[in-house]
Design a protein around this nucleic acid. Structure first.
Length: 806
DNA sequence: ATAGGGTTAG
C-alpha cells in the first residue's frame, strides 16, 4: 500500500484544477499578495474513481480525484452530481466543498484549500460557518495573515460571528501568523468560550514566548472553573517546558496535581513533568517524579537522562544510561537524538563523541535527523571540522542539516564559510527557514557584518520568509550591533506585536549607541503599554542611565526594579550601578555601594570601579580595586594594564615598572587586538601589526599617508598609551599599527569617498586611537563607526558620539 | 462536514 501511495504521489504534485484561476487580490476585492502561493498546472490525469481499495478517503490522491471529478461534471452548475464515492453523496454541496478543503488541509496542501475558497467567493457561493474554520486553518498553515484578516471581515459582514468554532479558528489563525494581540482581541470579544478557546489562547501566548500572559490565562481559566482535558493538560505541560523558570515549573506541577485525575495518561503526564522540571533547572523534582514512577518506559528514561545532561550532571546521566541498559530497556533513535542535542546544549564534547560512537557501534541507522543532531552538537561544542565531516558525508541534505551546519559556522564566527554555505544552499534550491535566517542574522550581529546582514534581510523580504518575533528581534539586534541604529529603529517601529525580547533589543540597542534618553523614553512607553520588563530590560536601562549620566534616575529605577516589579537584582545589575556611580565620578559612593552588596563582588564589579578610577585619575582607590581583581584573575592582562595606566597618569613610574615586571615574571601576554571590517560582503580581520593580508603593501602605504595627514593636522601620539606595551619589540608595532588603524586604512582604500566606514574591535578603543580616529573622520570626510567591546563610537567631523567618555 | 490537544527531537 505504501508503495502504491508513493508512486502515485510522485506523478501528481500540487493540484490546481483549471477552473480555479490564481488566487489574487482582485478575486477577493482587495489587494492581497502572498509570495508563498506557487501555482502549478493541473496534472493530466484521468478523473476516475478511487483506483485502489487501499486508498484512504482523505488521501491526497483521492482528494485530487474528487476535485477533478467535480470540475469535469460541472458540479458548480447543478450541484447534483454524485461524487466518486458513496460516502459523500448524502452531503450537501457546501459540505462536499468543506470535505475537499479539510482533506487538502490534512494532506498539507493549504494552498489548494485557499484556491477552492477563492473560487467559492468568486461564484458567490454561500460560504457557511462550517467552512470558515477550515479555510482559516489553511490561512494559518500558510501564515497568510492578510487573507485571514479579509476572512475575518467577511465573517463580521455576514453575521457568522456567533459561532464558537469560527472564533476559535480565528484565534488560532492569528496565533499561527504570530499576531497574538489579534488573537487576544478575538478572545476578549467572544460571547461564549469553550475549553478549546482557553487552550488556544494559552497556546498562542506560549508559542509567542509570552509566559506571564499565558500563566494569567491559566489562572483565569481556573477561576472560571474550566478544566482542561487530560490530553490538553499533557500538551500544556510540554508546551510550558521550553519557557518556564523554576518557580513557574513548580506552579505548573501543582496545577497538574490539583486538576488532573491521572486516569489514562499518568505516565505520559509524569514524563512531561520530568522533562519540564529538568528544563527549568529543577533536577531534584524531576528525579523525585522519576523514582516514583511505577513503570518506566524508554520515553521516561530518555527524559530523565536528557534532563541530567541538560543540568550538566554528566556522570549521573551516564550512570542512568547504563542502569537503563541493565534493565533491558534499549535506547531508540529519539533517545540518542535527545541526548546528543543536550550534549550540545551544555557543550559536553566528550560525552557527545561517546554517544556518536555508541550509535555507530550499536547498529543505529544513521538517519538525516541523527546526522543533523550530530552536526548541531559538534557545532555547539566548537568542533566545526567534525560537524563538517558529518555534513559532507550526507547526500540528500535538507533544510535542517543545512541550517545546523551554517549555525555551526555562525557560532564559531566563521562568517565567510557561513555565507558561502548559504549561497550553496540557495543555489541548490533548498529553501532556508527561519532558523537558518536567525543564525545568519545573529552571526552578522556578532561580527558586525552590516552588508551581509542587509543582503539577508533583503532575501527574507523577497522570498517571503515568515518573519516571526524571534527573527524580527534578531534583525533589530543586528542593525543595532552593526552600527545602523536608524535601520534598527525603523524595523522596531514598524512591528505591530512586540514581546519583551523585542523591546529589550531596541532598548539595549539605544543604550549601546549612547542614546540614553531614547532608551529611557522607550522604557517608559513600554511601561505605559503595560509590558512587564524583565531583568535584561533593566540591564539596558541602567546602561542608558550610565551613558546619559543620569545618576538619580538610575537609582530610582533600581528601587523600582525591586519594589514595583519584584525582580531580584543579579550581580550584573549591581555592576551597572557601580558603573553608573563611577562614571559620574562618585567613586567613594561606588565603593560604599559595593560594600553593601548582598553577594560577593566579582570581576565585573571591581572592573567597573577600576575603570572609573582610571577615568578620574584616582590611583589609591584604583589600587584597592586592582588588588581585588588580580586576586580573582591574576592572569588577566587587562587589569594589569589598566592599573599601569592609572600609575602612569599619576606619574608613579616605579609602580608602572612594578606592574610590568610582575606581568613579565608571570608570563602574562597582552591580549592581541583584533579588528574587522566588511567590504563587499566579505569580512577582513586584522590583528595588531598584521602583515598577513594579501594587500598588505597597499594598506601600509595608506597608513603612511594617514600618519602624515594626522601630523599635518597637529596630532601628537598619546605617549601614555605606549606604556601599555610590555615587550621592547612590541614598541615597533606601537600606535600606528593598532588593528583598528589597519582596518581603517583598508576601508579607506576599498570604499567610496563619503561612505561610512564600520569597524568592529574585540577590545576597548585606546585613547590614542580614539583621538586619531576623531581627526581622521574630519580629514577624510567620513563617518567612522567603531564598535568596541562595550559600546559604539560614531566619529564624525572631528568628534565622537561618546563624548570622550567610555 | 468545522477549531485545539497525545509523554522523550525539530
Amino acid at each position: 500500500m505504501d508503495q502504491m501511495l508513493l508512486t502515485t504521489s510522485r506523478t501528481s504534485h500540487l493540484p490546481l484544477p483549471s477552473m480555479l484561476l490564481p488566487l489574487t487580490c482582485q478575486s477577493l476585492h482587495q489587494p492581497i499578495s502572498s509570495p508563498k502561493l506557487q501555482l502549478t498546472q493541473f496534472p493530466h490525469q484521468p478523473s476516475t474513481c478511487l483506483t485502489t481499495p487501499h486508498d484512504h478517503p482523505t488521501s491526497i490522491q483521492h482528494t485530487q480525484q474528487i476535485h477533478a471529478h467535480m470540475i469535469k461534471t460541472h458540479f458548480d452548475n447543478n450541484h447534483q452530481n454524485v461524487p466518486l464515492t458513496p460516502f459523500l453523496s448524502h452531503l450537501s454541496p457546501a459540505a462536499q466543498y468543506n470535505f475537499l478543503i479539510t482533506s487538502y488541509n490534512k494532506n498539507n496542501f493549504p494552498e489548494s484549500s485557499l484556491q477552492i475558497y477563492a473560487h467559492l467567493r468568486r461564484i458567490d457561493f454561500q460560504v457557511d460557518n462550517f467552512t470558515i474554520p477550515s479555510v482559516l486553518k489553511a490561512c494559518g498553515q500558510c501564515s497568510w495573515v492578510v487573507l485571514g484578516k479579509e476572512i475575518h471581515g467577511f465573517v463580521l459582514k455576514n453575521g457568522l460571528d456567533g459561532d464558537v468554532f469560527v472564533h476559535n479558528s480565528l484565534m488560532q489563525m492569528y496565533s499561527e501568523c504570530g499576531s497574538v494581540v489579534s488573537a487576544r482581541l478575538v478572545f476578549d470579544l467572544m460571547a461564549e468560550r469553550d475549553s478549546v478557546s482557553w487552550s488556544t489562547m494559552i497556546r498562542s501566548y506560549v508559542r509567542n514566548r509570552l509566559l506571564t500572559e499565558a500563566l494569567e490565562v491559566v489562572r483565569e481559566m481556573h477561576i472560571m472553573h474550566v478544566k482542561p482535558s487530560e490530553v490538553a493538560m499533557l500538551s500544556m505541560v510540554s508546551l510550558f517546558s521550553d519557557l518556564a523558570d523554576t518557580r513557574t515549573g513548580k506552579a505548573m506541577h501543582g496545577y497538574v496535581i490539583r486538576n488532573s485525575n491521572y486516569d489514562r495518561l499518568r505516565i505520559p503526564i509524569t514524563t512531561a513533568l520530568i522533562d519540564m522540571h529538568a528544563k527549568c533547572g529543577n533536577l531534584s523534582s524531576a528525579k523525585r517524579l522519576f523514582n516514583g514512577l511505577p513503570q518506566k518506559n524508554v520515553v521516561s528514561w530518555t527524559a530523565m537522562i536528557a534532563g541530567c545532561i541538560r543540568c550538566n550532571k554528566l556522570e549521573e546521566g551516564t550512570k542512568l544510561f547504563n542502569k537503563m541498559l541493565e534493565g533491558r530497556i534499549f535506547p531508540n533513535e529519539i533517545t540518542v537524538f535527545s541526548l546528543i542535542i543536550e550534549c550540545g546544549f551544555v557543550r559536553a564534547l566528550e560525552l557527545g563523541k561517546w554517544l556518536h560512537s555508541y550509535t555507530l557501534r550499536n547498529g543505529f541507522v544513521m538517519t538525516l535527523s541523527l546526522a543533523t543532531a550530530l552536526v548541531d552538537m559538534y557545532g555547539k561544542c566548537g568542533d566545526t571540522r567534525s560537524a563538517r565531516s558529518i555534513f559532507d558525508g550526507w547526500d540528500n541534505k535538507d533544510v535542517m542539516i543545512w541550517s545546523a551546519m551554517i549555525s555551526a559556522y555562525a557560532q564559531a564566527n566563521c562568517t565567510n564559510e557561513a555565507s558561502d554555505l548559504f549561497a550553496q544552499m540557495v543555489d541548490r534550491g533548498v529553501k532556508p527557514n527561519q532558523v537558518t535566517m536567525v543564525s545568519l542574522i545573529s552571526l552578522c550581529a556578532e561580527v558586525g557584518a552590516l552588508d551581509l546582514g542587509k543582503w539577508i534581510h533583503l532575501y527574507i523580504n523577497q522570498q517571503g520568509v515568515d518573519v516571526d518575533l524571534i527573527l524580527k528581534t534578531s534583525l533589530v539586534d543586528m542593525y543595532a550591533k552593526c552600527g545602523d541604529i536608524d535601520g534598527s529603529y525603523r524595523l522596531f517601529s514598524e512591528a505591530k506585536d512586540r514581546d519583551i525580547c523585542l523591546w529589550n533589543a531596541m532598548i539595549t540597542g539605544f543604550s549601546m549607541h549612547g542614546f540614553g534618553k531614547e532608551a529611557l523614553e522607550l522604557f517608559e512607553e513600554m511601561e505605559r503599554l503595560g509590558v512587564e520588563p524583565n531583568d535584561i530590560t533593566f540591564i539596558g536601562v541602567f546602561h542608558a542611565c550610565s551613558h546619559a549620566g543620569l545618576v538619580a534616575e538610575g537609582k530610582r529605577l533600581f528601587d523600582r526594579m525591586v519594589g514595583s516589579y519584584g525582580l531580584v537584582p543579579k550581580i550584573e545589575h549591581y555592576g551597572c550601578m557601580v558603573d553608573l556611580l563611577g562614571r559620574a565620578g562618585r567613586l567613594e559612593e561606588a565603593h560604599e555601594f559595593i560594600k553593601t552588596m548582598p553577594m560577593q563582588p566579582n570581576t565585573i564589579i571591581w572592573g567597573a570601579l577600576l575603570s572609573a578610577c582610571r577615568l578620574y585619575k584616582h590611583p589609591d582607590l584604583g589600587e584597592v580595586a586592582a588588588k581585588e581583581l588580580l586576586e580573582l584573575e591574576p592572569q588577566n592582562c587587562g587589569y594589569n594594564i589598566l592599573m599601569s595606566n592609572i600609575y602612569a597618569a599619576a606619574n608613579r613610574w616605579n609602580d608602572v615598572a612594578g606592574v610590568r615586571k610582575t606581568m613579565k615574571d608571570k608570563g602574562i601576554k597582552k591580549q592581541p587586538g583584533l579588528s574587522s571590517i566588511e567590504v563587499n560582503g566579505s569580512v577582513h580581520d586584522f590583528v595588531t601589526g598584521d602583515r598577513a593580508h594579501p594587500q598588505t603593501g597597499k594598506i601600509y602605504e595608506m597608513l603612511a599617508e594617514m600618519t602624515m595627514k594626522l601630523k599635518e593636522a597637529g596630532y601628537t601620539p598619546d605617549t601614555s598609551v605606549v606604556l601599555q606595551n610590555i615587550d621592547e619589540e612590541e614598541k615597533e608595532t606601537s600606535l600606528n599599527y593598532h588593528s583598528e588603524k589597519l582596518a581603517m586604512a583598508f576601508g579607506l582604500i576599498h570604499t567610496a569617498a563619503g561612505t561610512p566606514i564600520r569597524i568592529v574591535k574585540n577590545l576597548r578603543v585606546c585613547d590614542d586611537c580614539h583621538s586619531a580616529t576623531k581627526l581622521l573622520s574630519k580629514i577624510y570626510g567620513r563617518v567612522i563607526v567603531v564598535r568596541d567591546r562595550n559600546r559604539f563610537h560614531h566619529f564624525r567631523e572631528g568628534s565622537c558620539s561618546c563624548g570622550d567618555y567610555w
